[in-house]
Design a protein around this nucleic acid. Structure first.
Lengths: 125, 125, 125, 125
DNA sequence: GTGGTCTAGACCACA
DNA sequence: GTGGTCTAGACCACA
């Protein structure tokens, strides 16, 4: 379900968070469905259960999942997911674009980069 | 000249690097001019000289400054700065846009965000 | 595993880097295997952990090792190692040969020196 | 006569030594001729006289120049120059080639690199 | 004066 | 357990 990249310099729990954010945001994990249990996922990834615990905590705080006592963790509702995803993404992008302005990068250059990303990705599909 | 944000969870040296990257990239520190000395800046920021040393090491590796033995550190040439700044920015933006795609954000939405950033900033000018 | 030469005028961390570059490049440390921990190596060499930390930072930047947060440092992949080793060696050699030209050393002399090195080494094997 | 490269990370005195080694070794400064005075050269290069003093000390130790009390420094005899140049160069090259062997670089590869250096340089002449 | 290296030792994040 | 950051302060090379 998830593959870790040990060359990645980020902490493992952060990678786990990011992978699930994507799986949840693009619908690969449907709203309301159950998340893999902490122990099971830890075993699959050969990782310390604390690490998965930490990742789930983060996902819960960000609103992607919610726990039910004694039953496990579940994917949040579609609307909530969409909302938080957009807000978080909007903030990050705004920050980076503002930074670009400070560095003297022109609007047209940035737009070009984006169009390229989408065009290239489209070709792979 | 520089203000540290102690709320910021990033290490101090990284904050210093980022501040100087902006000051250098947008021309506030002109090419060829001398950087504040390690010791002096350390005192101004009430920080250990080693921490500034580390920041300068990073800036040197990234190509923003170069040291002259026994004299101090100096801001790199205009062309070099422009080149490395663009490359770094391009990479960061590409990464974020790719992430956006994975999260299901549409191209047009992203372009809109950018246009907004520039429009708002333009109004402040 | 590693012996420091205190007569050597180079800084300790640089010696450590060089020793490991050789151990890694010639396969004495196999790709993917774990590096000695910072603290342990520091103790073995009777050196401050910061010094080893610095050496590992350098090795990481050069691509010989990569860190996994909370686990330790690991030797890079075989292909990466081969690539960076060749590039670094090529650059050093080119510099020295160019210097030889400037000093008036003839091409044939240099080639002779090399053949000698390999012949002598071959006899030892 | 000499141009310093402030981007060069080596200390200035070392650059001065290297430049003169080349000028002397390839005959641009003829044996027995007088070296520029410490003060004059320091002024020309906008450099501290101590720095030039240090460079001349080094050149003297290596045998490229010799001082005459009250008159200045002079370029050594042709034979001496040739001898010391070859010995020093031979040692450096041998070390690097040996290192190459340790890293698994083949004899033919090294010879190729050398031939390339000379061919390219020949084209510039 | 300048930066570069190093020690001794603390404290934090991550697994 | 692992590495990463930081302080306080010494000592060295270079200009």
């Amino acid at each position: 379900m998830i593959i870790l990249d040990y060359q990645d310099r980020r902490p493992i729990y952060e990678q786990v968070v990011e992978k699930f954010r994507i799986l949840i945001a693009n619908g690969a994990l449907s709203p309301g469905s159950q998340m893999p249990s902490v122990r099971q996922l830890a075993m699959e990834l050969s990782v310390n259960p604390n690490t998965i615990q930490r990742a789930y905590m983060e996902l819960e705080q960000q609103g992607y999942i919610y726990p039910i006592k004694g039953r496990g963790n579940f994917v949040a509702d579609r609307k909530d997911i969409r909302r938080i995803t957009r807000i978080a993404y909007y903030q990050e992008l705004t920050k980076l674009v503002t930074q670009g302005r400070e560095l003297g990068v022109e609007e047209s250059e940035i737009v070009n980069i984006i169009r390229n990303c989408y065009r290239e990705a489209g070709e792979h599909d």
